[in-house]
Design a protein around this nucleic acid. Sequence first.
DNA 1: TAGGTTGTTGTCCGG
DNA 2: ACCGGACAACAACCT
Length: 588
Amino acid sequence: MSDNGSEEKGSGTIAIQLLHNSLRLHDNPPLHDIEKAKYSSFVPLYIIASDHPFDQSRTPLTVNKSRSKFIHESLTSLDGSLKSVGSGGLVVLETKDYPATKSEEDDDDDDDDEEEDSSEEEFSGSDDGDEASQYAYTPDDLSYAHALSRFLSSSVLPLAPNPSSVHVYYERETSLPVIRRWRCCLEKALKPAGVKTKVYETHNLHAMDEYLARGKGGSPPASYGAFCKIFDSLPPPDACVPTVGELPGLPKEVKGTGVPKLEGLKVDMKTGGGLVFKGGESEGLKQLKKTVIDNPAWAATFEKPKTAPNALSPSTTCLSPHVKHGTVSPRLFFHELTKAYEANALGGGKNSKPPVSLHGQLLWREYNYLYAYSCPNFDRMVGNPVARQIPWDDDPLLLKAWKDGRTGFPFIDAIMTQLKEEGWIHHLGRHAVACFLTRGDLWISWEEGAKVFEERLVDADWSINNFNWQWLSCTAHFYQYFRCYSPISFGKKTDPNGDYIRKWIPALSKYPKKYIYEPWTAPPSVQEECGCVVGKDYPDRVVENHTETSKGNMGRMAEAYKIHKEGKEKGGGGKGGGGKKKKRKIEK
DNA sequence: TAGGTTGTTGTCCGG
DNA sequence: ACCGGACAACAACCT
Ligand SMILES: Cc1cc2nc3c(=O)[nH]c(=O)nc-3n(C[C@H](O)[C@H](O)[C@H](O)COP(=O)(O)OP(=O)(O)OC[C@H]3O[C@@H](n4cnc5c(N)ncnc54)[C@H](O)[C@@H]3O)c2cc1C
């Protein structure tokens, strides 16, 4: 944690933790600091802007209820555990209660999206202030900062001997939307208020700049293997900070608010009879215990590609929502895995290794974050230095059919339904539907798919999601476009009976196993008997023939790659020669 | 520098 | 249930 100075605390000093994606007591450096440093009071602060999943005006709960529910439970759990160690509990602000004043509204004049067209391709992880447009504050950034500013000036600063005796802690997170939000808060709220700010680093196993410093020329390594070498050359991730036992309460004049009610959550989630993710630190730790601590042999021999996308009870840890929201610390996860590897090796077992192991999964997360951090326009094709430029089709109807789980391919539709209902799908399920939407069948841009995932996943993570969509669409990192998932064959390998399809698409539940992956091949009499006629009770398939379509798409991909290669040969010129670019710039 | 090997997680066919 | 090879062929990383 960047703590500059050892100014005396106590009398009148107030600590604030600005909470975002570290909703826990364990491995929480600010709390540890606050306990040690004897602040006279502590405000755990959480701000809800209109881009938060709670906000029903923009994102109705019927759409991403699973994430709303998860966060709601996480906040409720945190509120309770904070109180159990003497804190006054959460203060939750909603920006809608802090309408902007006239003069501030004049500030946001940047509604332009696409002015960024520089063919300059570069990495710029540093905060140079280049790349102006992607750093332009959103209205929600501004309203968030505004609420913070108002809270500080009306409720906190009057209680403090001076502004610098108020210390605001926040977690560093390198996903662009979070960088932008904190930057906006610094500029519009924290600096003007004159409070001290303290950043803590618990979101990743190491700081991104540590990885970059070990790489070549300040750019991220070009392959996962190279990244692993860098990771291994660093000391192991820091140990977790001990969990606090006692915290100061809220300032007398500030009241804990509890967690706002979510009307929409009265309605039970329509579960296809499956698991529903429970939020909160204790649930997260329980899941970690269940999958890793109590099951070291399983965890230590885990091989990701061998896990089934269509298992009825998930074949992977399901810790991603917890890692995303910080209800389980990534380095706690990492260190518990290390213990599992030791125990397994001691018992004579052979540990799995990256990339397929569970440590390997956490390294994928680091690697994803590193690219997202280093790469401008990471959520777009245009202006993204690592993205192959591919002429995707614009087809809103096809996109909608995919999004709604109405493609007519049961395996795809089942996965998309699980995504909608539950908010979590297995990694290889994500592969299957992402491939189908992009290079495999529909030839629709990965950006569209990423937006749907961002909205619906309970573990939606800007850095990881965009990275993986680039991977699957053969836009970056992975280029073997001739390896293509079949919406018919792929699921059969691990679920020949189609039980997963029966679970999520009840209309097809009576189909014989022979037809369940391709119901259009069932004779009309069978369709009638099963009570599900294709074209009437279940959609016609959106693509006549997957094999032909995907073959055709491989041709289009080859074409796009050819153009890329020619462009590189022509434009690339000498490398290293001439205009050597500034730090952290690389050629495509 | 060319040319062989490797890369989390494909499919289809034959054994 | 699993294994090997053809398919037609990408880019990064070795040597
Ligand atoms: C198109 C697509 C979009 C994705 N979007 C997201 C997303 O928004 N958020 C997200 O957390 N994951 C995303 N993933 C990665 C991966 O599918 C999920 O992290 C994983 O399925 C979560 O389940 P788990 O916790 O049981 O994973 P496990 O296999 O148990 O892995 C353990 C942890 O490692 C991390 N992890 C696992 N796989 C990956 C991966 N491929 N890349 C980066 N980190 C990984 C997660 O934090 C996970 O909790 C996406 C994958 C694809 C193909």
